[in-house]
């Protein structure tokens, strides 16, 4: 039984859906702290390519992750229309750069279909289920899996 299904067994759950390129993804709303507009980040030396740098979030230094690049898609070219999802991942707070937030979904576990067998390792690593809503396909991802304890171990 997958992580998401196990957690959702208790009943319905809210998810935040967002768009990257032509794909839609969603994460558990409980891990999302806030959503803010894109501001230029200060680049970090020797960082993985998906780390865009750090920004000032009311006095805290917040690393910005290009989620598109992290998921193995095209690198994002941020515009003022891009948004940053500020999310709590384990005990850290990170900003996830996405193109747009599309929806807030309330789902129960029967809405979530298991991830089909695909060859890509990365998908297996982060995808926790697939939702079919209004003919759209939304992939549920688990943030904890995207950011293991040390950023540098993956890439």
């Amino acid at each position: 039984m997958s992580y998401a299904v196990k957690n959702l067994a208790q009943g319905s759950r809210e998810l935040i859906a967002f768009r990257i390129g032509d794909q839609e993804f969603c994460v558990n709303i409980m891990s999302v702290r806030e959503i803010r507009g894109w501001t230029k980040a200060t680049g970090l030396p020797h960082s993985p390519s998906y780390v865009m740098g750090v920004i000032n979030l009311r006095g805290a230094v917040l690393p910005i992750i290009d989620l598109s690049a992290r998921l193995g898609l095209r690198r994002a070219e941020p515009t003022p229309r891009h948004v940053i999802i500020v999310a709590q991942v384990k005990n850290r707070v990170v900003g996830l750069l996405v193109e747009a937030v599309s929806d807030i979904l309330t789902v129960t576990d029967e809405n979530i279909q298991p991830v089909p067998e695909v060859s890509s390792d990365l998908e297996k690593q982060y995808a926790r289920g697939i939702l079919a809503i209004d003919k759209r396909m939304i992939c549920l991802i688990e943030l904890d899996a995207l950011f293991p304890d040390t950023e540098s171990e993956v890439a």
């Binding site: 970090l44 960082s47 000032n56």
Partner: peptide, 22 residues
Amino acid sequence: ANYTHVPGIAAATILGDGRVAL
């Protein structure tokens, strides 16, 4: 606090324009 240690960088700060400087 939210990221890992960056080699060559001791810490960060926020400048008057609100941007982060290393």
